[in-house]
Design a protein around this nucleic acid. Structure first.
Lengths: 186, 186
DNA sequence: AATTTCGTTCTACGGTCGTTGAATGACTCC
DNA sequence: GGAGTCATTCAACGACCGTAGAACGAAATT
């Protein structure tokens, strides 16, 4: 059989790899790097632990693959426009929990090696915000902004602060509007 | 020997327990619950692992003891006053990293059991902010505020975002002033 | 000085982990 | 339809973990 038609084997292999990766992502996000075991990922994906190793090489490489996210568009424009884009991004992160990003975040906090595997992948560090913030202390204000937004997403999805976990995303975004705008303006 | 005079043994025992607790706190904060091993704590405190068990019963109880912090004073007053108190508290957390609180935070993110051991100890969840914020959505605004402040401390001490990790605490507090004030006001 | 107390170490068990390499058996191809 | 490929499983290893209990030796008590 030639290379354009995919065989049954090809289909099953890809399907299995996807299943492993999906479960890995979920587990890394839910329980962090250390407490996510190869064995647990394998069980969730209904395969043998050895198969996970065979496809991904090591736990570390599995994490790296699981942590891959489509790089987000760079925010840009005037201070007001940047603020609105960030708030919109926040709203999305409040509604759908950004599984891969949370996996990275949670694991960066637990396993330095996991963080190394991710460095330069800019969903956490800066989130491409840096270049969009101008004026005095632009870089610092960008980091503060990142920290603030990370804090809110973290508080809702990981810490599950009572009110924050249940609140209407629109309401949260509304409350944070002035705070975010005060930081985008130089 | 009676009970008012402390013996050499008493002194050495208390000294050893303190040493273990100090190292435990440091390690829990630095590497989180899972990656902090009883053996590592023991080695850092220069004692046998068994002694740690003997004094603290289990890893979980050791963590509970390490996570104890003096409960912080409740913030109160007008919206402006609350904002100033929170900013002052933030400044302190930016200068001296709050080791015990970070240990709790880091471990809450990695080990649910560790978090359970701490529930009701209010340094993270709410930080007693809740009752001080009045007006519409007071409880929610308190949680958002907690999340924002946690995010900044986290970004500086744990994630070590470039600019945020090195910046002058006063400068950070200054930048966050408007954001915090916008959230304390109903 | 003899005896008891107790702070501390030593040794070991059972369990789980990441990882490996051989074995298996269904699918592919000629 | 027989040979070969390859997705997958099986069994086992060495390492490290939390934990338990016996053993030791210096301080305390009598």
């Amino acid at each position: 059989m030639n290379s354009v038609n995919e065989t049954t084997r090809d289909r099953r292999r890809i399907e299995t790899q996807d299943r492993i990766l999906t479960e890995a992502r979920r587990l890394f996000a839910e329980t962090g790097y250390d407490r996510t075991t190869i064995r647990a990922v394998a069980a969730a994906a209904q395969v043998d632990p050895g198969l996970v190793m065979h496809y991904f090489g090591s736990k570390q490489q599995l994490f790296a693959r699981a942590a891959e996210t489509e790089s987000r568009p760079i925010v840009e424009g005037t201070a007001e426009e940047v603020a609105e884009q960030l708030l919109e991004r926040l709203r999305a992160s409040l509604i759908d929990e950004p599984v891969a990003s949370l996996a990275v975040l949670r694991s960066m906090l637990t396993h330095p090696d996991a963080a190394d595997e991710v460095r330069g992948n800019a969903h956490v560090r800066g989130s491409n915000i840096g270049k969009a913030i101008h004026g005095v202390d632009g870089a610092l204000r960008a980091d503060v902004l990142s920290a603030v937004l990370i804090g809110v997403v973290l508080g809702r999805h990981l810490l599950k602060l009572d009110q924050l976990a249940d609140a209407d995303p629109d309401k949260i975004v509304e409350l944070l509007g002035p705070a975010v705008r005060s930081l985008t303006k130089g």
